[in-house]
Design a protein around this nucleic acid. Structure first.
Lengths: 190, 190
DNA sequence: GTCTATACTAGGATAGAC
DNA sequence: GTCTATCCTAGTATAGAC
């Protein structure tokens, strides 16, 4: 009797790959390691993702989706308060960065591993940061900032700074001052 | 006739390794690639650096030395003006981040590639960030900030944010607003 | 037909012997 | 400075279980 095709295979592969990539970085994790942890055959992985690059791009899309979920939740919690949303975005990222074992923004980390500008993985990373930038700008405009471009970029600096500093120094680093800084930045921009 | 032992060998190796590590990341650069570019034998490299990890640690020490040179130059340019030095540090990093081909802080990038906390490379990275943090705190104290810890951490966030954002988006990113933000932050803290 | 498991190629890695 | 040993990688092909 033939098995039914497993519709969840792609999701299961991505879940394992995400966990390993997040923990160790992309280049240090081999496909064999993913296969071993999945307990599946090599063919299954290669059916869903023809190359490792494809798997990495799918991983990045998943990271991007996670980010979108966060900002949408914040948007629902503070409807009609774009200025508050800008501050809350910083607060949520800072909270993540102070957790034990935080390794930084996975997209930044992946971007650091793929230097060639034309590489699809590098492009996927840049695409994510462009989306983040656009969203922050949109919030800054709706907050009626005098200079929304500058406000959005200042918040972007804080978010990126929390991710980088938290990856290096964790909770004993600079993340704890991020929310206060965002507060001052937003207040001064309105 | 036998060659004299080359006292500059270590420096030449480090120079090539630094260029390649900066451009492509640590894991993607093989020792063979470094050897090929040097035009030397494998023994020479192994005489100076027993393992790749040792070479990477030496590379990080070089990065740390480069950073020290920058802050010392700023210290000489603005003697007796610790507040101005904090702003100038941000300005110099932002200027670097807007250059063509900027790939981010090499220490952050290397740290992202070495996740294991006990790994000597990871330790070397954290050591660098601790030094940076201490230096910023020292400047904030000497600037007579009301809360020097918070001021130092706010500047650290901006510096790290410039490095991360610049690596992703370059000159079209958020680096251009860094100096202005640092200016406001320092002014508000005094 | 779908999956697991294994064998295999080709290349690159670290490491070290001579 | 060359040459070798061993290991690990991505990716392909094949054999067999369900």
């Amino acid at each position: 009797m033939a098995r039914k095709p497993d519709a969840t295979a792609r999701e299961r592969i991505l879940a394992v790959a995400t966990r390993l990539f997040d923990a160790h970085g992309v280049h240090t994790v081999g496909l064999q390691q993913i296969i071993d942890e999945l307990g599946c055959g090599k063919n299954l992985l290669y059916r869903e993702f023809a190359t490792k690059d494809e798997l990495v791009v799918a991983y990045l899309e998943r990271c991007q989706h996670d980010w979108t979920s966060i900002v949408e939740r914040i948007s629902e919690e503070l409807p009609g308060d774009p200025a508050g949303q800008l501050i809350e975005i910083v607060a949520v990222v800072a909270e993540q960065a102070m957790r034990q074992g935080f390794r930084g923004c996975p997209v930044h980390n992946t971007n650091a591993e793929f230097a060639v500008a034309e590489h699809p993985v590098h492009r996927a990373c840049v695409g994510h940061f462009d989306e983040v930038r656009d969203h922050l700008y949109d919030l800054a405009v709706r907050a009626r900032a005098d200079d929304p471009r500058t406000l959005a970029d200042r918040i972007a600096l804080i978010v990126d700074g929390v991710n980088a500093n938290g990856a290096a120094l964790g909770a004993r680093g600079a993340s704890s001052v991020a929310r206060g800084l965002a507060d001052d930045v937003v207040r001064a921009a309105l």
